[in-house]
């Protein structure tokens, strides 16, 4: 019995180990969320590249700064959470609304069938982060500093990402008939949620963005910068027509945060 099983090497673990090594290398060199950097810092990555150089120039006309996020597959969620909470620090009215929505969201997810025991853990941490940037408790500078510290603390930062993933997954389930139309291949909504939305480190697509934006009632503008023609970046608003509060730049495979002029 011993011998005949030996040819079945545990491949899963070998693959997972290799993946862990790559992830470690990235996490040792790039912070979860960087300091504010001038937009033209992007030039250094595209020296001699006419297409990108002209697009960066176009981007600089509209945006002054950006913040990089770690490319770990969670970048959309992390960038979104950081940028929106940063907006809330100086918008008391939006903050109060969001906090209320956050408080109520747990019961809604439980109703949708999420396990309340584990959900509670993420919800508590998420709300703790929201409370720590309450505009009525301190001045915006101190709160921004606080936010930056929280988002570079892996424990808190990842819990926020998880909770946003669960909210996204809940929205997909709630409006499954609608979102089913956007899913490519033979995935059911159920499979898609468990395979592409809830697990950490899975990259986000339009469907994730649309579901999260509508779950939270927040508008996002994404500036697309790729090798396409035209020499300008292309903006896309989610959901269409809503005033964006969060600005992101998308380069194939990755989201960073933008700051309008």
């Amino acid at each position: 019995m011993e011998n005949e099983q030996n040819d079945n090497v545990n491949r899963d673990e070998l693959i997972m180990q290799q993946q862990r090594d790559i992830e470690r290398e990235i996490s040792d060199t790039i912070p979860l969320v960087s300091e504010k950097l001038p937009v033209n810092c992007l030039n250094a990555e595209y020296i001699g590249d006419a297409v990108f150089t002209s697009k960066i120039e176009d981007l600089s006309a509209k945006y002054s700064h950006l913040r990089r996020t770690r490319p770990d597959g969670n970048c959309f969620f992390r960038a979104f959470a950081y940028a929106y909470l940063e907006h809330l620090i100086s918008n008391k009215e939006d903050y109060d609304k969001f906090r209320q929505l956050g408080e109520n969201s747990k019961d809604k997810l439980v109703q949708l069938g999420f396990p309340s025991f584990t959900l509670e853990d993420f919800h508590e941490t998420f709300m703790e982060v929201v409370k720590r940037v309450d505009p009525s408790t301190s001045n915006p500078d101190i709160l921004s500093e606080q936010l930056h510290k929280i988002f570079n603390d892996q424990g808190y930062s990842d819990y926020v990402v998880v909770y946003l993933r669960l909210l996204t997954s809940g929205k997909l389930q709630e409006e499954a008939d609608f979102y089913q139309n956007f899913i490519e291949g033979n995935f059911t909504i159920e499979e898609f949620r468990h395979q592409e939305v809830e697990p950490m480190y899975k990259e986000s697509d339009h469907i994730h963005i649309i579901a999260l934006c509508s779950a939270l009632g927040v508008g996002v503008r994404v500036e697309y910068m790729d090798r396409g023609e035209g020499g300008t970046v292309k903006a896309h608003d989610f959901p269409e027509g809503q005033t964006p509060k969060v600005f992101l730049i998308y380069r194939p495979g990755h989201y960073d945060i933008l700051y309008p002029k």
């Binding site: 999420f114 959900l119 993420f122 998880v162 669960l166 697990p199």
Partner: peptide
Amino acid sequence: LQNRWSPTYD
């Protein structure tokens, strides 16, 4: 335990 892990599992 691999690609369909969700943080909601305990």
